[in-house]
Simulated assay, not measured.
Amino acid sequence: MVIRNVRLKQCGAAFALAMFALIPTGVQAETGPAPAPASPSDVVRFVVEGDLAGVLIRAPDGTIKPVAGITRVKDALKVLADERLAAVWPDLLAWAGSDLRRLRDRSLAQTESALNDQSRFVPTTLRERQALWPKKLLAFTQYLDALSDAGKISEAIALAQAEITTPAIAQDALDTGQIQVKLATLFERSGAVDSAIGALQQAAATTSDQSAIENINVNLAAKLAIAGNYARALTLINAEERGYDQISPAKLFQTGRHMPDSHAYFAAIRACALNGLGNHEEAMRMLALIEPDPETPFTESVRSQTRLRAYRCMHDAAGLAAELAPLVANAAPGSVLMIELQPGYQTDPAERETVAKALTDARLVHAMAGRARVLGEPYASAIAWWNVAPVSPGTPKPAN
């Protein structure tokens, strides 16, 4: 193990690694409201053991807390975008590569190894744990993400399509539905929103499990709204929410397939669709049903995530800036929220432009000062998944 530039005398190497290893990827940065910006002497600048790396910080009360575990490129980007963690950047880049390609390749190898040997530890996000996914499904979808992160999105799409048709997967409609949703996400990430919509329509038409259909249709409504098909998005999300409300609490507990604050997703999609149809006042009333949640760690707050999605989908730069400003002001060091500030991370051109415009708003500029920065080269390629390759030929197209 290597602990670089340690100034925390009470932090032994084994203790530091143990604290880091207990925090799953995707939630480790979210430990509550941010302390004051850290000085270099407050930061354990880098902790490394084998392929495991992380950043720790001394909290105001003197305790040592993990603030960022780094196993994927996205994890490194959120640290590099956080100016409070500038002291770790040199060591992070020495380990991950100056353009993060070394970390990209390491992450791809790790997830492929975990897919082939499911006894290996696979870090999980809060969302993945809430969804109660089987380990095989989790390992497979994480490998798809790693391929996509590495710019191999055509390979990820082909692999997902092949997996959907295998008998072992096809026997479990819920697992198949999750892979179908992931396939649509891959299409969307590649810029092929029409193919994403087509894949979800095909999935809904061929799936017999009602819970799987509900999940597919909610994702379909979101992508229809992004594509500007607001009337269909509104009709579909209204129908899905009515169906959701009719499910008994006992069934929800038994299936474990519905995420917390599901109504926030419905309201966000409905707000975008209403706004697109010219009913801005009703859209804002709908958005107001999702109460702001700036004090809850961003990764844990479905409300904060969905409100941001709604403003991006509505192409409301002023609203997005107003929403982001208090979140940034309260963000824990190394928060995944730092990725949300990167225009290049958005795959939809209109949403990318919305984020870029929001960054010029004085409220957000003030909130970001001394806390967050927009990343340029040499990280722009990493943010955009190394300029992903064109999608595979013969991809599904949406029905008329």
Rank of each mutant, 00 (worst) to 15 (best):
F140W: 09
Q142S: 08
L144T: 10
D145Y: 08
A146L: 07
S148E: 11
D149A: 09
G151S: 04
K152V: 04
E155G: 02
E155N: 06
E155T: 14
A156T: 03
A158Y: 00
A158L: 10
L159E: 09
A160P: 08
A162C: 02
I164G: 01
I164S: 03
T165M: 07
T165V: 14
T165E: 11
T166A: 14
T166Y: 05
P167I: 09
A168H: 14
A168W: 15
A170I: 07
A170L: 09
Q171M: 12
D172A: 09
D172W: 12
A173R: 13
L174E: 09
Q178H: 13
Q178N: 14
Q180E: 15
V181Q: 10
V181L: 08
A184F: 03
A184H: 06
T185Q: 10
T185E: 13
E188N: 10
R189F: 12
S190T: 08
A192F: 07
A192N: 10
V193L: 08
V193H: 06
A196N: 03
I197K: 04
I197M: 04
G198A: 05
A199R: 05
L200F: 00
L200G: 02
L200Q: 04
Q202E: 12
A203H: 05
A204H: 10
A205T: 06
T206Y: 07
T207V: 12
T207A: 15
S208R: 10
S208T: 15
Q210A: 15
Q210M: 15
S211E: 12
I213G: 06
I213F: 07
E214G: 14
N215F: 13
N215W: 12
N215D: 08
N215Q: 11
I216W: 02
V218Y: 05
L220F: 00
L220W: 00
A222T: 08
K223W: 06
K223I: 10
L224S: 04
L224A: 04
L224G: 03
A225D: 11
A225P: 11
I226G: 02
I226M: 06
I226K: 14
I226A: 11
G228F: 02
G228V: 04
G228Q: 01
N229V: 11
N229M: 04
Y230A: 06
Y230K: 05
A231N: 07
A231D: 09
A233Y: 00
L236E: 00
I237A: 01
I237G: 01
A239Q: 11
A239R: 00
E240D: 01
E240V: 00
E241W: 00
R242G: 00
Y244W: 10
Q246F: 00
P249K: 07
P249I: 08
K251H: 13
F253M: 12
F253Y: 09
Q254F: 10
T255S: 14
G256F: 11
R257T: 13
H258D: 13
M259A: 10
M259L: 14
M259H: 11
P260R: 04
D261A: 13
D261V: 03
S262W: 07
S262G: 08
S262L: 14
A264V: 03
A264G: 02
Y265Q: 12
F266S: 00
F266W: 01
A267C: 05
R270E: 12
A271M: 05
A271K: 05
L274M: 13
L274P: 01
N275H: 13
N275T: 07
N275E: 10
L277H: 08
L277S: 06
G278P: 02
